[in-house]
């Protein structure tokens, strides 16, 4: 059995004078949930389009289920389920009819699978309502149902939580986790909600301006995300002096809003609070915190998360 479901080797995609993907070497292990992180226009959708055969690489290779030849790649795509960008649906058809087209196309025997995926995504009660009249969240669910038809081994989802309400986002996460756990399905997913991705993915890839900056596992990400004590006192200058002199540390940052992030003495918070209190400081906020995926991502791409 192949260890990797998807690998790309030196993948390049150029549009006229612009490089959409630059020398991308992506590795997605079987059974993993791969969170694909990047700003708008970073190259996430472009890579997904190359993998799913919607666009063609300028150079480099794509290896899907160990296959990289043109014909073999096309065949390997039958083992994938895909939902990229806006939900791809026939607006004048019902949920069942949309799924029936996909079932006929793929030659999936029996109609039982349609009922099953509709139940899975919570759309079993839509009846004669056409996709045109669905909310964006319902369309996203139906697009996921289409992708899940035929029990794919590899799911490619581009922003599947767009348009979902908070409950829908949680339900989507739980569904994907359940599928991954119970069927071992591999998932490549991009999302703007990084906190959600942090709760879902087991592996991460960070892409910026077409270049894959880093691939890391959840464990590696946890180590990279720095832990600190968040402190807010009435005099940040005096607090900085106390940290330097009483606790002999310079591993802290005083932020523009006057709050302090202390990266040392994490195991002894009472000593820190004691020293601050002994200096006569009024402690307004004092809590251990971890750097979020958003902060790590922003740092990794070199600055603010938005340009």
């Amino acid at each position: 059995m192949n260890e990797y479901v998807l690998r790309t080797h030196r993948l390049v995609k150029a549009y006229k004078n612009q490089l959409a993907l630059d020398d991308v070497n992506l590795n997605i292990r079987q059974g993993s949930i791969y969170g694909f992180i990047g700003q708008n226009g970073a190259g996430k959708s472009t890579l997904m389009k190359l993998v799913t055969g919607m666009a063609f690489p300028t150079s480099g290779t794509i290896e899907l289920f160990g296959e990289s030849g043109d014909k073999e790649l096309v065949r390997a795509r039958r083992r994938m389920g895909v939902a990229i960008e806006n939900p791809a649906l026939f607006p004048q058809l019902t949920a069942k009819e949309n799924l029936e087209i996909h079932r006929l196309q793929r030659g999936i025997p029996g109609k039982e699978c349609i009922r099953r995926v509709l139940e899975l995504v919570g759309l079993e009660g839509t009846g004669r309502k056409t996709a045109r009249n669905f909310s964006l969240g319902m369309k996203q669910r139906l697009a996921l149902a289409v992708a899940l038809l035929g029990d794919p081994e590899f799911l490619v989802l581009d922003e599947p939580t767009n348009g979902l309400d908070p409950v829908g986002v949680v339900e989507m996460r739980e569904l994907l986790q359940k599928l991954n756990r119970e069927t071992g399905i591999t998932i490549l997913i991009s999302s703007h909600i990084l906190s959600e991705l942090h709760l879902l993915a087991s592996h991460y890839g960070i892409i910026h301006r077409g270049r894959l900056l880093e691939e890391l596992t959840l464990d590696e990400l946890q180590k990279q995300c720095r832990q600190y004590i968040h402190i807010k006192v009435d005099s940040p200058e005096l607090a900085a002096s106390v940290l330097e002199q009483e606790l002999a540390t310079t591993k802290f940052e005083v932020l523009a809003d006057g709050t302090i992030q202390l990266f040392e003495h994490l195991g002894r918070p009472s000593r820190v609070s004691g020293a601050l209190a002994a200096a006569g400081l009024a402690i307004e906020q004092f809590m251990p915190m971890g750097e979020a995926l958003e902060s790590y991502f922003a740092k990794r791409i070199g600055g603010g998360a938005h340009e």
Binding site: T52, G53, M54, K71, V74, R75, A76, R77, R78, R79, M80, V82, I84, E85, N86, P87, A88, L89, F90, P91, H102, Q105, R106, V146
Partner: peptide, 14 residues
């Protein structure tokens, strides 16, 4: 326009 062409080409057929 409705994106279903994407579905067709990614379904694993030449």
């Amino acid at each position: 326009a409705n994106g279903t062409m994407k579905r067709s080409v990614s379904a694993g057929f030449p």
